[in-house]
């Protein structure tokens, strides 16, 4: 949105206005997914190791909906998308290297 449109005066903003129905749909989806999370939790004994996978999968879908529609990343420029993604990227770096250390702590031998 608000990309430089040479036909218009740059002093006038032309926001991309999403219709109310879109917000309603997204909110409904978020409510539905939350209920789904809880329903899935009732079966977490049957799901076993998949229980957390399901829970976080749903959470990730919800987060994506919020990002794309409520926070308008869908209509935003690539720079802002990249900026936001970089946060997650470096978080994964932090997790990955910390885990590499903690998971390979053996006192006896250097495995490499």
């Amino acid at each position: 949105m608000a990309a430089n449109n040479h036909k218009h005066d740059p002093n006038v903003l032309h926001p991309h206005i999403s219709p109310t129905s879109m917000y309603l749909k997204v909110a409904a989806a978020l409510f539905g997914l939350t209920i789904l999370t809880v329903v899935a939790h009732q079966f977490h004994h049957q799901l076993g190791a998949f229980a957390s996978l399901v829970a976080f999968g749903i959470a990730a879908v919800k987060a994506t909906l919020v990002l794309l529609y409520f926070m308008h990343l869908k209509d935003d420029n690539n720079m802002n998308r990249a900026i936001f993604a970089s946060g997650f990227f470096f978080l994964i770096v932090l997790l990955l290297f910390s885990v590499v250390d903690i998971a390979t702590r053996v006192t006896e031998v250097s495995p490499l």
């Binding site: 470096f90 290297f97 250390d101 390979t104």
Partner: peptide, 17 residues
């Protein structure tokens, strides 16, 4: 961002890391 562990070679960090 990928090199911080070189401050920790003798800290009890694993040899692999």
């Amino acid at each position: 961002f990928f090199v911080w562990g070189h401050h920790m070679f003798v800290s009890g960090q694993s040899a692999t890391a």
